[in-house]
Amino acid sequence: MGIAERKTRHKEELRSSILTAAWDMVLSEGWQSLSIRKIADAIEYSIPVIYNHFENKEAILLEFSKEGYQLLACKLEQARATVPTPEEQLKVMADAYWDFSFEHKEYYQLMFGLGIPACEMVNQHEEIKKMTHIMISTIQQALEVSANPGADFFLKFHTYWSILHGLVSIQMIDKGRQPDHKGKLVLQDAMAGFCKSLV
């Protein structure tokens, strides 16, 4: 292995170490505890070394946020593939979204700490774009076979996502880390109503 390859590998390993240390800190102490200084101490490097890999703490948070969106997109896609019709897909995707939010609470809190991302943010990051596309395309398919195919799919998408995020947020605030059975029943009832409004 040449010098250039070794340097590249070392840089990638160091970047991975930074992210691992940061994630361990988040899991043990929460997002508010994360700092460049603490990360540097954890990996036993100087603060400037961290800045060589990430411009600031927000850049590290963005990296984790993108990982979260990628994981959520994967969960939605897997759920959607289990049933044949768009209406059923929207329901199982809602269940998958709910499960993701509590199985990966640290990701979810970061991804939605400031609410649903603005359109500009969605368009800037492929991971967010992919996740929203899964929802939007399923809603479009449901509308195409409905009695009102000309309905505003983007409005319906915002309604769908607002229901999901709203119910998850209420459950997180009210019940803490673990959701209760009633919360999921409310979600399923809301999704039944939403799907009925589409057709």
Rank of each mutant, 00 (worst) to 15 (best):
I136F: 15
T132P: 01
L114C: 12
S137G: 07
L110M: 13
C74P: 00
L72F: 07
K75V: 04
N123C: 03
E126S: 07
G68C: 06
E88Y: 00
V122D: 06
C74G: 08
E67V: 12
L114D: 14
M131C: 15
E87N: 11
L71C: 08
A73E: 10
E67Q: 15
G68Y: 13
I128Q: 11
A79P: 04
P117F: 08
E88I: 01
W98H: 09
A73M: 02
K66L: 08
K130D: 10
M93H: 08
K130M: 07
N123R: 07
K75E: 10
K105H: 11
F64N: 03
L90Q: 06
L90D: 12
F100G: 01
P84L: 10
E103C: 03
L62I: 10
A118L: 14
A96E: 05
K130I: 12
L62P: 00
E127W: 00
T82R: 11
Y108M: 07
H125R: 12
P86M: 07
G68V: 11
K129M: 15
E77D: 13
E103F: 00
V92F: 03
S137A: 13
A79E: 05
L90P: 08
A81N: 13
M135T: 09
L110D: 13
H125C: 04
E126Q: 09
P84H: 08
W98S: 06
A96D: 05
Q89K: 15
C74S: 15
C119E: 14
A96L: 06
E77Y: 11
K75N: 09
I128N: 02
V122N: 09
L90I: 13
K91C: 14
I136T: 14
F102Q: 01
L62Y: 01
Y107C: 08
K105W: 08
I136Q: 12
A73Y: 13
V83C: 08
K66V: 04
P86G: 04
I139G: 01
L76Q: 09
